[in-house]
Design a protein around this nucleic acid. Structure first.
Lengths: 228, 228
DNA sequence: TTTTATTATTAGGTATGCCTAATTGTTTTA
DNA sequence: TAAAACAATTAGGCATACCTAATAATAAAA
């Protein structure tokens, strides 16, 4: 059985390699992400390589092997199912669930995850809009795209976000933008790409491109001319 | 903040000192209970004593201080609430919940415990029939007594058990004796104190005193002449 | 292309939470 | 009451999972 501390490494590698700038997962990127020092991480990477869960070369960074990716997706599955449960069944805000799920994902019982998932209604996406892998690690496909890619006049729905920081989530909460919120794109400012949106009854906001890039939506009308 | 590994010690001391033979909690009793070696336990007991969570003297064994007992009851509360949740909401058998609760009790969120408890209907006793302390460590009083103390003819209800071992719980499951089962005491054999019971529609069993001692019941009629 | 900055690696260290083996008390019980 | 059994203690060791400081390799900038 693979240790929970090692699962953290696998999950981190997975997360970093699925960023926009998805090139190589360097030692110091990982150390920074995990809040550890490079020598600590290096030691463990060598171990994980011996176990054939990753490959690691200084030039190439860390990459998950087939087995390693499966492990990573397994933890991601647990994490996202717990987040879903906490949000849907326990009624926590989507900005509160991450910390708790981080601890709960380590509980060792497949059967428990199954029950929790059933109780949550077996959705395909977690409260941040991230896809929940099935038991064999397959991800559901989604039509998520960044709000930033909208054309003026588009009406779309918030499916999730691309950042978990409390600062960001609290900002959205302040604006009263939540999961499943329907947004209407009023204007795209050519100057810097800022996006003006309307939502709820009469709320409106101008979002910086940095923010709009991290809000994931899907268009309400199929065949809308927004980019993906 | 007190470490989860230290909480285990406090809980163990609490558990052992609340046994029938509740005299002193010796070093080796504790070591046996925790499945550790005496030197390991001694080291930690000295630490816990420095922290004023227990007192420990070779002659007197380990005793919880006020603070220590409060800590212990706090973990016990979490453990029993998780067990209740797993049984009532997730529909696990009462013989499956202990292991999972052991892990879940370490999750650090008062708020989560509150939600889980609400979802479970805020009962006063867990699925083994053990009382759930409130937030200040107060225990609800119960009228539990061992089945062994019954008089012939008594009708009573199973509230819980005094042992958590899988062997014991599986034995009860085989006999189809579960929580809230109504039992009718047919005969007490003077020879060794075995108890013959009837229950469900026509099931019957003769329980050894060792078993009958560990099944906790309450009489269905107030003023029944059973001992407590 | 030399200097500077960044990143990776090695070597050695610390705290935690366990362990075994040996020693010393303290009970039983013969 | 001496021998045997058991409980408590001391001393020293090991693995894990981190760390710092120093060095080597590589990439970026002057």
């Amino acid at each position: 059985m693979i240790k929970t501390s090692d699962q953290k490494y696998l999950r981190a590698i997975y997360a970093i390699s699925h960023t926009e700038k998805n090139n190589k997962v360097g030692l110091s990127d990982l150390a920074y992400y995990l809040d550890l020092k490079p020598p600590t991480v290096l030691e463990r990477l060598n171990f994980l390589q011996k176990e054939k869960l990753i490959t690691y070369k200084k030039t190439d960074g860390a990459r998950l092997t087939k087995t390693g990716e499966k492990e990573a997706l397994n933890v991601i599955r647990k994490h996202r199912i717990w987040e879903t449960f906490l949000h849907k069944v326990c009624e926590f805000g989507w900005n509160e669930v991450h910390e708790m799920a981080e601890q709960l994902q380590n509980v060792d019982s497949e059967k428990l995850i199954d029950r929790i998932y059933t109780l949550s209604g077996e959705p395909k996406f977690d409260p941040h809009g991230d896809p929940i892998p099935d038991k064999s690690g397959r991800l559901p496909v989604s039509v998520r795209r960044p709000l930033l890619n909208s054309v003026e006049g588009c009406k779309c729905t918030v499916l999730g976000v691309n950042e978990d920081s409390a600062a960001f989530l609290n900002y959205l909460t302040d604006l009263k933008i939540g999961l499943n919120e329907k947004l209407s794109v009023e204007k795209i400012f050519l100057f810097d790409g800022s996006v003006k949106i309307k939502y709820k009854q009469g709320e409106s906001a101008v979002l910086s491109p940095k923010v709009a890039e991290k809000i994931m939506v899907s268009c309400n009308k199929p065949g809308c001319s927004c980019k993906n």
